[in-house]
């Protein structure tokens, strides 16, 4: 006897005019490196300034999910080396996310939201396999993302897919995100584990960067069978990150979780605490038009 446990992490690009920490345009450009500046290129000395429009949109989404919007939240540096990360750290909200709790009801189930937070997007890597080179397009670097993390409340693939469809619709209707999956403005990771009703606890598999509901269902169903067969044959499911190969319809290992990345989180010293009053939360949640003058960044200085 087994129970399937599925959780989702959704990255939605917020529908802002500019990037999360600089004034570069956030509009989509197919020509690479058109929307760049010293801040999103991480040039020495350039410092981030929070785009308050992103806060407004995140609050609106959070309220629609019946979540608690925190009056104070903060930013952290998540440090890791990867060519698409210009500072070699991502500014995210690790210790004090903006949004906590919340839920979204499906027909027969309530899916709980664990938290949601603001973070910046990475650059886009362009592979040139024939030349053995990788190109970097920084148009995407620094775009505002809202990452929404659910509890592992899904027990099958169709539920996960229904949830995503509903969330996607909401985000578009609320004007929070364009939701264009082909442009990467709405993408998701899925965590899949099997809980045997008797026997040993099994590992958890994460599948990264899916951008279609159909692929999500396929990936979950494939993993479910793969993991069940492993357990039935007396094996153990390893905690790892896998990717879904759409052409073969299978998941393949990317990296083991036991060599887990140590992200060396550090409170972001260049951004103060983010304070939002209850009045602001109420105004942003009511879907009010942005009043430029009152959107000065409110942050304290220690």
């Amino acid at each position: 006897m087994f129970k399937l446990c599925v959780g989702l992490e959704i990255h939605m690009q917020l529908l802002c005019q500019s990037k999360l920490f600089c004034s570069c345009s956030a509009s989509f450009s197919s020509a690479p490196n058109r929307h760049i500046c010293p801040i999103c290129l991480a040039y020495p000395g350039a410092m981030p300034s929070l785009n308050h429009q992103a806060v407004v949109l995140a609050v609106r989404m959070g309220s629609a999910l019946r979540a608690q919007i925190c009056n104070t939240s903060a930013f952290d540096r998540k440090c890791y080396f990867y060519p698409d990360m210009p500072k070699a750290y991502q500014i995210t909200q690790y210790r004090h996310p903006l949004i906590q709790g919340g839920y979204l009801d499906l027909d027969h189930t309530r899916i709980r939201i664990r938290e949601a937070h603001l973070e910046e997007d990475s650059a886009r890597t362009i592979h040139y396999p024939d030349k053995g080179e990788i190109g970097l397009d920084f148009n995407r670097a620094g775009l505002a993302l809202l990452e929404i993390v659910t509890e592992a409340d899904f027990c099958d693939a169709s539920q996960a897919s229904d949830f995503l469809k509903k969330l996607h619709r909401m985000a578009i209707d609320l004007g929070v995100s364009k939701g264009k999956m082909e442009e990467g403005s709405f993408r998701f990771d899925v965590n899949i584990s099997i809980i045997p009703l008797t026997g040993k606890t099994q590992g958890r598999v994460e599948i990264k960067n899916l951008n279609s509901f159909r692929l999500l269902e396929k990936a979950i169903n494939y993993e479910k069978i793969r993991q069940m067969e492993l357990i039935e044959n007396g094996g153990m499911v390893a905690s790892e990150t896998r990717s879904f190969d759409a052409s073969l319809g299978i998941t393949v290992p990317l990296r083991k979780k036991d060599s887990i990345n140590d992200y060396r989180f550090l409170p972001e010293p260049d951004l103060g605490t983010l304070h939002i009053s209850n009045d602001e939360i109420e105004a942003y949640s009511r879907n009010e038009a942005l009043k430029d003058s009152c959107l000065e960044q409110s942050s304290n200085i220690i």
Partner: peptide, 16 residues
Amino acid sequence: DAEASSNLARYAGTHL
């Protein structure tokens, strides 16, 4: 040193 380790990580030979 803690802050420096993150501030100097960008000098990685990619674009800087």
